[in-house]
Amino acid sequence: MLTIALPKGRIASETIEIFKEVFKKDFDFADRKLILQSEDFRFLLVRNQDVPTYVYHQAADIGVVGLDVLEEQGLDLVRVLDLKIGRCRVCIGIKESEELDLNKPSLKVATKSVNIARNFFAQRAIPVEIIKLYGSIELAPLVGLADMIVDIVETGETMKQNGLKPALTILESSAYLVANKNSFYSKKDEILSLYESLSTAVESRN
């Protein structure tokens, strides 16, 4: 029996679709239920950013989570498979009228992804002040809170509607299947067998 943490929303639905295809069974969460028990799997519906925590603490053996969340949190997990769903980019966004200039003596960067942003600028020895925000990141450059933002871009439409543009891609992200290290070693056969089945399904879908 494997417990699988799924992030609420579109990635959960798409992952469930892949499981349906692979195992020829219906895996549907009943209304508002957070646990779905089937013969071989127990699915948990959790918030996107909480998936690594559930897996790291072994409340779930495996989980599905965006690479951007994995990189941001940096927890020690087994990286099993790129499911090639939930694709997005982590980008630097600036005002549409401006050009990206990383040579200014001081830069203010607003972001939810503090660690990704800090690592990116630190690797390039660019001194920045990181301003942590929890939402509406696009607002920051418009009201003078920051010179630029580091944010997730799917189509670029949100930035565009707010007078911003993606200027540089920091990370290409998609949803990954990850595993707890102890679960991986103690349930290796189950997890590798699931990897094989899902890998074949992902390849045929792409």
Binding site: L77, V78, R79, V80, L81, D82, K181, F184, L192, Y195, S199
Partner: peptide, 10 residues
Amino acid sequence: KSVNVEYLSK
């Protein structure tokens, strides 16, 4: 380090 199963396999 991350036991990247897909990379090691493919």
